[in-house]
Amino acid sequence: MADTSTQSIQVQAPLDQVAAVICDFPRYPEWADAVKRVEVLEEYEDGYAAQVRFVIDAGPLSDDYALEYAYAEDLSRIEWHLVAPSKMQKTLNGSYDLTDDGAGATTVTYSLEVELSIGMLGMLKRKAEKMIMDTALKELKRRVESLGKA
Rank of each mutant, 00 (worst) to 15 (best):
A32L: 15
E145N: 01
Y110N: 14
S8G: 03
E129C: 04
Q10E: 14
M1C: 06
I56A: 02
A49M: 03
E129N: 13
R77W: 04
T107H: 05
P14L: 04
V108R: 05
L92C: 11
I56S: 05
A136G: 13
T135K: 14
R126T: 02
A19M: 01
A13Y: 01
V40I: 11
L98A: 02
K141D: 04
S76T: 05
A2S: 14
R142K: 15
F25Q: 13
D16K: 09
D134A: 12
T6N: 07
A49P: 01
A128W: 11
V18G: 01
L140W: 04
G102H: 03
A128Y: 11
V38E: 11
M123S: 10
V35I: 15
D63R: 01
S117G: 15
W31M: 11
R27T: 15
G102C: 05
D3R: 13
A13D: 01
L67W: 00
L112R: 11
S86Y: 03
Q7V: 08
S8H: 04
Q7W: 09
Y65S: 03
A2Q: 11
G122V: 00
E115W: 08
L116M: 15
E42T: 10
T91N: 12
P29L: 12
E145R: 00
G59Q: 08
D16P: 02
V38K: 15
L15Y: 00
V21K: 03
A20F: 13
L147T: 10
A84Y: 08
A32G: 10
I22S: 03
T4Y: 00
V108Q: 03
A150S: 15
L98E: 00
D16R: 06
M123D: 10
P60W: 10
I22K: 04
V35Q: 15
T99Q: 13
T135L: 10
N93R: 14
E39A: 12
D74K: 00
D101C: 13
T106I: 01
C23A: 14
N93P: 07
E129S: 07
F25W: 15
Y65W: 01
F25D: 10
T107R: 12
G102L: 10
A70I: 01
K36L: 08
E139P: 07
V108M: 05
R27W: 05
L75G: 00
K90W: 06
S146H: 07
Y48H: 15
L67E: 10
V11Q: 02
R53H: 13
Y28F: 15
Y48W: 14
E139S: 06
A49H: 01
E145D: 03
